[in-house]
Design a protein around this nucleic acid. Structure first.
Lengths: 346, 346
DNA sequence: AAGAATTACGACAGCGCTGTCTTTAGTTTA
DNA sequence: TAAACTAAAGACAGCGCTGTCGTAATTCTT
């Protein structure tokens, strides 16, 4: 199958190359029957426009960059999150004939701003999508905004930042989980916080506080730990908490990795879960289904979240009215109740 | 920073645009001091060649496609593997100023051949890198070969297929693990096989057989199970094996997911690991460190494997002599001994 | 030191599209 | 039915590079 050019199509359809171009790009001012004729020839010749030529002539890149924090830098098992991001982004890009440039970063890297701005300049991307925690980095956002490149965020919590953002209800659902634990009879509930730079994780802590208040429970100071999202710190803090003379009966962790660490410590200390201790996580990584016991947690629909965010971005990139209603912007997470939570010991 | 063109650089350096082009592309026939002068100006003006223009003029795409089986289709936790693939590929691409097109596929999809050939034609990729199990799909390889597009494989086991391939020693290292179990005193060793279409997993079984033979042990028929790589089947087969009147004292699984399933069943059945049962996996997914007990397994250096494979591919794409020696083609996996294996019960 | 061989560099066309502008066909109005 | 308009289609330049080929500068011969 020899690759055909726009000229071939034009000639065979008896029109000018410009008309073919109009059809290909869905531009107006083409009569319906000529459009059909051209489309037929395109199909017949299996014509695909040369991406580089389009880009060069149109001064666009047809490229969307997906920026995310690279979990393999910490070698943790939540990489599934990234794959879901990519999948969602890929799907929308494909449907809009854009390409996707994946760009794993280290959100702690001090040169991040420079790295991203050179990405924008060198690759001349038409738009950027930022996943948390990169979407929390204020100076990064400002850097990008200064380049006038459209961007969208997957962002936790509040809606004030920018209109180009999809939001999660981390706070509300964390409150819900807390209330669920209270409902099970737990009164001594511990919380292991995550990285403070991760805004979503802060929101989860706020949600925990809400939930405790709503349940008429008060938070004991030494039941709250400052974790760093890692399995290891879940282990460590569990050891501390469970060695207390008056230990908590439930531990709610900011993410599944830490919850898994708690599970391990409980196992080692011979503390039965959920009989003597309830454990809850957040994220619903695939592993959560496979732990002993399996983990009660909270699931976020990462893929559809990403797809929404990217659709918003594409609207911006293509300068068209957004069809996404504000209601669609809030992506709701849900409790997933498994084996690691149960009635409070009496 | 206004974006500068090749003309700007040429003018400022007092040379023609062609000379600038030569410098940028590392072509010969440029005097050392003019090269330096041009490089200085490039730096000064922060010149970056327009990728689309290069592609159009050179009739190349500067694009490498990375094809892999999408683990999120099965929602399993080994997605870290993919991230490592991507990272390795990204690193080499960046250093060669190529872009990376990620292309997750379903290796069971019957339209895969067509999908890939249209990828090649539409995106006009300069080269493809296939990860297992896609690299095992004979008809896919033939399809790609027919397009004359350079490609490289990350391929298990034997070296006969093609020179453009990086190999793993799945078989040898599986034998090693088996011998290690034998060394610990185990005589009744079970094996849970993986997906038969996955060539690497077959190799692992062959290695198991080698190891048993080398240790003077014989394989009991009902100690060998045909798994499908999933956690669930690990659970299931463990239940079957451990319910035998004369159960195995060690179970070696083709991958960590299944080994993790075994661990769970043992936990549920109250069988102590490693005291009464040793369990070994393969892959060293991040989770393997976090199970209860942590998992003895085998680690493959996926990242460096990918980097090697891509370097070979780039040599082919750029039509230059490969600097990679045949010895580098064999990427060796290593045993990682953790808590799940121990002396055979006496 | 003059010619031959070689290396360094430049002029210019053209890669395959899209944007702009112009022309033609078609439709409406008076 | 002609003038005035609008919709549809075409002509053509040019996006920013690289490839080819021609010419100038340099080095190597003897």
């Amino acid at each position: 199958m020899p690759k055909s050019l726009i000229y071939d199509v034009a000639q065979r359809a008896g029109v000018s190359i410009k008309t073919v171009s109009r059809v290909v790009n869905n531009e107006p001012n083409v009569r319906e029957n000529t459009r059909e004729k051209v489309l037929a020839v395109i199909k017949e010749l299996n014509y695909r426009p040369n991406a580089s030529a389009r880009k060069l002539a149109s001064q666009k890149s047809y490229l969307i960059a997906l920026l995310y924090d690279d979990p393999s830098l910490y070698d943790n098992p939540s990489s599934n999150y990234v794959l879901n991001l990519q999948q969602g982004a890929l799907r929308i890009c494909k449907s809009e004939t854009y390409d996707l440039l994946i760009h794993p970063c280290d959100y702690r890297d001090k040169n991040l701003n420079q790295e991203v701005s050179s990405l924008i300049h060198n690759s001349r991307v038409d738009g950027l999508l930022l996943a948390p925690p990169l979407s929390d980095q204020k100076s990064l956002i400002e850097t990008i905004a200064a380049t006038d490149t459209p961007f969208a965020l997957i962002s936790p919590g509040n809606k004030t930042l920018t209109p180009l953002s999809v939001f999660t209800n981390d706070r509300e659902v964390s409150a819900e989980m807390t209330e669920y634990l209270a409902f099970l009879g737990h009164k001594k509930i511990a919380f292991i916080k995550g990285d403070p730079e991760h805004k979503a994780l802060q929101e989860r802590y706020s949600g925990f506080k809400d939930g405790m208040r709503n349940s008429g429970l008060k938070i004991e100071k030494n039941f709250v730990k400052n974790g760093d999202n890692s399995f290891g710190c879940g282990e460590l803090f569990a050891k501390q908490l469970l060695s207390l003379k008056n230990p908590p009966t439930a531990i709610f962790c900011c993410n599944d990795d830490m919850a898994n660490g708690v599970l391990r410590t409980a196992y080692k200390m011979g503390i039965k879960v959920p009989d003597s201790l309830s454990v809850a996580g957040f994220d619903d990584i695939p592993l959560a289904e496979q732990t002993n016991p399996s983990l009660t947690t909270i699931r976020q629909p990462v893929r559809s979240m990403t797809e929404h965010a990217l659709e918003i971005l594409m609207d911006k990139v293509k300068n068209r009215e957004s069809k996404i209603s504000p209601d669609d912007l809030l992506i709701k997470a849900k409790l997933v109740i498994r084996e690691s939570t149960g009635k409070a010991p009496s």
